[in-house]
Design a protein around this nucleic acid. Structure first.
Lengths: 176, 176
DNA sequence: GGTGCCATGTAATGGGTTACATGATTGC
DNA sequence: GCAATCATGTAACCCATTACATGGCACC
């Protein structure tokens, strides 16, 4: 799965600049790309070459000109076509689970520190995600069939489940 | 997080060849690298250069020679040091959640097909994972503080949660 | 005769990251 | 004076992927 279609997706809602797209990527983890300049500006050129978007340059005084990208009919068709391709299964990457495989290489107190640190970080992250979800669901006046809030909640539930697991593990280790 | 330390981890259990390591990566999704030749053989050279492993070449008649890699004291120390570094938070990458963001671009029956296909694939995958977990927990006579089974179960629960979510979504769409 | 396992490795490519570069404006 | 926002883009690099290459043996 490439970032290309996700950018088309955003552009299907409203015309945007590269800068705007960058922000879109940083606003939600579900769009898991870093949204770095290199990729975005290169991909925009690509999208334009394939006539999936049009460019409108708008000059601004004392600011760099904005290049506003608008999706074309072909772009919308390409997006739809991509949406119809069966979605690959989710990928989970947990550094903790990998490390715990060799937990026996650590002293009990070292293991305990590892878990506690992780737990704290997870909790902080969850606070952030919940805040984000709250904000996003507030301003988006739910369009007919968009699952924004539902998706965000599901996302959060992955972390919640992970948190519960670590807590249970820590509890078991403490009582043993 | 690089594949390097994971390879050291495997080598901390027992000496292995590059070929063996490849298999280790394919045996469990938790070790999420593809385990392709390029990376493994290159990394083994690197590990050897850094004196984290030693090489023993064993000739075999009518088969290519095996290069058996054994972890050194320095290797074990490097592994431990890596284990102590706080684990990054897990990363989830769900193509489905990304696509559903633009679900309104699809006809109801197209959306339905998308979800059903995904659900079926998930279920198949779960069957495979459960089988894998069963096999792995059978032959590993649980060492003192290794969480193999626990880790596998947690892994499975991520997919189960995802499955439940899709099923709930599909149910809601059907009844609406 | 074809597939799969053993066992090593290389080549080409793709996808993604960080960091660099410019430059004005606003706010602390 | 410093950081952040707006807004574009480039350079260097790293990690990972697929595919290619070799070659014998076992099994159906």
């Amino acid at each position: 799965m490439s970032i290309k279609y996700v950018m088309l997706g955003f552009l299907s809602e409203t015309p945007l600049t590269g800068y705007d797209l960058k922000k879109k990527f940083s606003e939600s983890e579900v769009f898991y790309w870093s949204g770095n300049n290199n990729q975005i500006y290169k991909t925009l050129v690509e999208l334009h070459d394939e006539k999936l978007v049009t460019i409108e340059v708008r000059q601004q005084d004392s600011k760099p000109p904005r290049k506003i990208y608008t999706i074309t009919e072909r772009g919308l068709a390409a997006l739809r076509q991509w949406l119809l391709v069966p979605a690959e299964l989710p990928q989970f990457r947990s550094a903790l689970l990998v490390k715990l495989t060799w937990a026996d290489q650590l002293e009990p107190h070292e293991l305990s520190t590892l878990l506690t640190t992780y737990e704290t970080e997870l909790q902080d992250h969850l606070v952030m995600l919940r805040e984000q979800a709250r904000r996003n669901s507030a301003d988006t006046a739910a369009p007919r069939r968009s699952f924004g809030r539902r998706i965000a909640d599901h996302w959060i539930s992955f972390y919640e489940q992970d948190l519960a697991w670590v807590q249970a593990l820590r509890h078991d280790l403490d009582t043993a």
